[in-house]
Every structure is written in C-alpha cells, then in structure tokens.
Design a protein around this nucleic acid. Sequence first.
DNA 1: GGCTGTCGTTCGTCAAGGCGAACGCATCGA
DNA 2: TCGATGCGTTCGCCTTGACGAACGACAGCC
Lengths: 217, 217
Amino acid sequence: MSVNNEGDASTGGAPGAGATAAPATPATPATPAASGSDLIALIAASIRRERERVGLSMAELARRAGIAKSTLSQLEAGAGNPSVETLWALGVALDVPFSRLVDPPRPVVRVIRAGEGPVTHSERADYAATLLASCPPNARRDIFRIEAQPGETRASDPHMPGTVEHLLLGAGRALAGPTEAPVELLPGDYVSYPGDAPHVFRALEPGTLAVIVMEHI
Amino acid sequence: MSVNNEGDASTGGAPGAGATAAPATPATPATPAASGSDLIALIAASIRRERERVGLSMAELARRAGIAKSTLSQLEAGAGNPSVETLWALGVALDVPFSRLVDPPRPVVRVIRAGEGPVTHSERADYAATLLASCPPNARRDIFRIEAQPGETRASDPHMPGTVEHLLLGAGRALAGPTEAPVELLPGDYVSYPGDAPHVFRALEPGTLAVIVMEHI
DNA sequence: GGCTGTCGTTCGTCAAGGCGAACGCATCGA
DNA sequence: TCGATGCGTTCGCCTTGACGAACGACAGCC
C-alpha cells in the first residue's frame, strides 16, 4: 500500500474553486479546452477509467491511495476540485502518470500525405516545414530509425497503454499502421496510430527507410 | 549515445501494472519520487521558474490566472497543496502544460552522430530499428516534416533555452546543424543539436526530405 | 519632502475539501 | 434465514485552501 500514506496531510484540501475566472485558453497545446467544471469532469472520468482499467474497487483504490473512499466517491461523481496531493496519490495508486488524469483521452490513426498538413514556408529559401504532431504534455518520445527490406511483415506486439507511434516514411514504400487497417505510405507520408494495439510495418520496396517516434505517456 | 536509458520498460509504461503496488514508485515515468512535501516543493519551484521565465510579477500572474496573489505567494513559498483548478489556472496563465508544473525540471542535451546507436534487428524480416534518442522526462517533442530544395541556407533563430532539435534525413542531401559546425547528411543520417543556439538547414539536392523533432523542455 | 504606483508578504474570514462513521445494497457461506 | 463481508453513497465535523484587505518596502515623479 501504500504509498505514502500520508496520512498526514495527505490531503489537504482543496478548495477552490472556482473562483477563477477561467481564462479559457487552454494551456496545453494539443489539449482542447478544459476550463473549470470541464476539468473536474474530465478528471472524474479519468479516475474512473483508470480505476476500472486496473480493476480496483473504490474502496480498494482509496485504501491504496491513502485517501478516504468518500473523497474518491465524490471525485468520481464529478464533485470537487481535488488537491494535487490527492490526485498524485491516486496517480501513484493507479500506477499511471499524473498527467494521464488531467489530460483528455487519446487520438487515433492519422495520416498526413506528403504535401499535406499545415506548412510553414520559408520566405527565402525553398523550404517547407510541416507540423505533423504537436507534443502532448508529459509525453516521452523516443526516436527510431527503421531500415527495412521487403519480406515478412513485422507485426509488433502492443506496447504499454497510451503509446502512440508516429511514422514518417523517408524512402521506399511501406505498409504500416494498425494490423486491421494498415496504410500504404510513400516517401514523405506520415501516419500515427495507437501503439497499444497490434500494428504492423512492412517494407514494400528495397531500401525502405522510416522514422518512428514512439510516444508514451 | 548516451542515453539510452531505457528505462523504458519500466518507465515508459508505468501502467501496466496493475495492481499494484509499487508504492514508492512514482507514477510518472521518469519521475523520481516525489511524495508529499517533495511534490509541493517541486510545484513551488516550477511555478516560480515558469513565472520568471515569462517575466511576470506575482501580482500580474495572479491577476491573469484569476487567483489571489496571496495564494500565489503562499504557493511559491512552498506552503500549500493547491487544487487542480488553481494549478490549471496558473498553467493557462503561464501558457505551459499542466504537467510542466508537477513534473521535475530538466533533461540534458546530447548529440548523436549518424550511423551510431543501438540497433535492434528483426529475427525474421529484414528490418532494423535504431534508437536514436530516448526521450528525457518532461520534454515536449513536436514533429515536423521538412521538404527543401537547394537554395539559400535557412538559418534558424535560436529557440527557447533547452531546446534540442533532432533531424533525420529521409531523402536527398543536406547540410544541417549548428551554424558554426553544420554536418552533411545523407539519407538515413541523424543528427541532433542544440536548438537554443543558431543553427541552419540547407538542402543540397532537389527533393530533400527530412524529419525534425523539436524537443523543448 | 510627499504622492503614487508596484512589488511581495501577512493576517483574518469564509467556503470547500477531506475525513470517518453510518447507511443501504448486493453477495456469499454457514 | 441470518450473519458477515464487500461495495458505493450520504452525512456531520474539522481542517485548510483561497480570498481580500492591509502591510512594509521600493522606485519614480512632481
């Protein structure tokens, strides 16, 4: 159990409220707005989702997190405005990163073909930059280079929950994406898809080159 | 490389878990423990750091966030245990992702030359994956696709301190890296360099294609 | 000098979060 | 059938976060 139980202060309180004016603008880049009550509703949903994912009862989770189950009950009911310590304790008990509880869910498969996407042209040189994926808060993104030759399909076992793969084909031709719906890619094409579900990568031409950015929360 | 931490397994995914325990284990992946008072001390430091980075006074920040400046004062003093709404409001006002305030500070800068790095060969297919850069905790990495034609050199103004750019050339040929010491790249070559110092990108062949992952803290 | 603005801190008040106990409801076993 | 155990919710109490006003310190300006 754990964790800190902190009995101590574990919890303090958190009041709040709303006072805040809620500036509306979301701070997080890729994060859709979440102001005031939206935020707590989102947290409520996140806690419930993660708790059920792990398969814990409220009582058990509350015990592990060192908080009162009444507190947890109200939190999941969308009442309240938990303190960071409370939320942190829950994150620890659920074994999920803190930000998973405050950030909205996840994206899906997205393809940006070569030449598509928001492009920033250089005024001067012949240079075009395309933002393919803005980074969600607190994500880790490991960068891989893939060199593959035609042959057997490489099927990846699902990674940790919350993982997203970003793939940009540099050269050659490939079939990649979710196992049940792979996408054919040409040089410059970009695709992102959940890495926590079965997915494949298959080179269709010799000398196929790709970059995979593996993002995990 | 350095790097590699690999903690991946562990880190990356924290979740898996299950049930468990993992008490001491911090919820956030690369997050060193931070329980109880550590957490609020860390938040206090984060708020102050971000506030000073933006160049706001306490009064101004409090006004923008819609919270009492006394609240902010106490928070930065390390007293307290703010509610998520309060912290969220501060994140919005500071224009930083929420998790930036609750996760520990900094990573490091590292450079990896093309052709290096741990390679994972597929047992079966002709497939090689190279880990180019394991992600430091708390970094944001935005992914860009670059299409460039030979011409004028594109010189980038330095970005925020701590920024690192990762560049992998997909096709063509390019000269890229720090302005004072750019590197010539061929398809498959990877280079990363500080983005907070002057740097350039210059295509040497028509149809030059690259991926830039811009990492900022 | 005195006036005005801002800075960050401190203090008293109020409201709300968190707690524990008790409740109603299911399930299980004797 | 009855008790026991677990669940999630509801109810008062107490703590504490957040507020606003007032404070001393500092700088600019007439």
